[in-house]
Amino acid sequence: MSTHSAAPAARLLLLDTASLYFRAYFGVKDLRQAPDGTPTNAVRGMLDMTSTLVTRFSPTHLVACWDNDWRPDFRVRAIPTYKAHRLVPGTQDKEEAPAELEAQVPIIRRALESFGIPVLGSDGYEADDVIGTLTVRHRGRGPVAVVTGDRDLFQLVDDEADVTVVYTARGGVRDAEVLRQADLQARYGVATGAAYADMAMLRGDTSDGLPGVKGIGDKTAAHLITTYGSLAGLRQAVADGDPAIKGARRTNLEAAADYLDVAPLVVHVAHDAPLPDVPLTVPRELADPATLQQLVEAYDLGSPVGRLMRALKLRPE
């Protein structure tokens, strides 16, 4: 009998960081200010959310995934309306966000890095692409939980690969739903994460500036993807003259051909974003205690920093 045992599963927790700090900013009513007048609600909320998630999911590996580019050129070239409604008027790359939140984002990053939590982004890519890439890299090593309030990432749900989405949009972080394929089936009528992405392309998404196909909503999109197996299968059936696709539906699908040609470039998260090869393990000691102490003193962060230290089982220096 072999004496070798399998390596313990590595539990990877991936944070859609911007999704969380936006939620913290709008959800944390504590608007106390630092002595210099900087608001701190998003910083405090982000640290508290991270504490809650670490306590709930006990990850062995943890990454705060970052938007190095929130509106990448390759997506805008494919569909120029992509996120265009979120631009600051007169700009091509600046996202509208409250000034009180923007002032806190660098503090959030410095705090996470001071703890030793990897903060990873990739130039020319969104945090979603970082999440997709790390999910693929981790396959076979253990479960992956993706924390987000963004439905776009439902495409990564994969029971076989043990990838779940911890969806914060309804219950917040503390009571966030953990979505598996059965949940996609029950809620949207699609059996897999990949089918969800195909459905999303047909349906469109006004929050991202994706037009979709005229006359096709959630239910019709799910029915078509289920019937034809995939968006590619549906488009092949249209091209082949399937008699079941007729009238206005055929007309609208044919009219949307150019959009459907490029929609996958926008909707599918990248699986190969360039990322530095750094350890992703949960920190066992503070990476930069001096900087963390400076942040605590400058922004009165003693309570949330203490909670995260306890969640990570870190000892103060």
Rank of each mutant, 00 (worst) to 15 (best):
A287I: 12
V213W: 10
D300P: 12
A244D: 08
L13R: 10
L184V: 02
D129G: 02
Q92M: 02
V105H: 05
H271C: 14
R180C: 13
G229Q: 06
D300Q: 13
A6I: 03
V147L: 03
V282N: 08
R86C: 10
G247W: 01
T133P: 14
H4Y: 01
R284K: 02
D218R: 00
K219L: 04
A10W: 11
L280C: 04
H85A: 07
F57Q: 02
Q104C: 04
D272G: 11
V173N: 00
F154Q: 02
A270W: 11
K219H: 10
L265P: 09
Q293N: 07
G189V: 02
V296M: 15
E96G: 10
H223V: 12
I107A: 07
E254N: 03
A34H: 06
D300V: 12
D150M: 01
Q181E: 03
D218Q: 00
D123E: 12
R151T: 11
E254F: 00
E297Q: 13
A232Y: 04
P304G: 05
T91C: 12
V305R: 03
A111S: 12
A239F: 00
R23D: 00
A287E: 15
G121W: 00
V105E: 09
L234A: 00
L184A: 03
N68S: 11
V43L: 12
D198I: 07
L253N: 08
D158I: 12
T133A: 14
H223Q: 15
L314H: 09
N41S: 14
T164R: 09
A298Y: 13
G204Q: 09
D123R: 09
A248R: 15
A244K: 02
M201Q: 10
Y259V: 06
A18Y: 05
L12S: 14
D129T: 05
P143I: 14
A42P: 12
A222V: 12
V266I: 06
T135D: 07
L53G: 10
T81C: 03
V213F: 11
I216S: 03
Q185N: 06
V43M: 07
Y188G: 08
E177P: 02
G90V: 00
F74V: 08
A99R: 11
L308D: 14
R86G: 07
A99I: 08
A103L: 09
P106Q: 05
P264Y: 15
A78M: 09
T227E: 00
R187A: 02
R77M: 06
A99K: 07
P316H: 04
A6G: 06
G241I: 00
V28I: 15
P274C: 01
Y82W: 09
P211S: 06
L62E: 07
D30R: 15
V157F: 12
A97P: 04
D272A: 14
A195G: 13
D30V: 15
V54E: 09
I79F: 01
I225W: 05
F115P: 09
H138C: 14
R75Y: 01
G90S: 01
E285C: 12
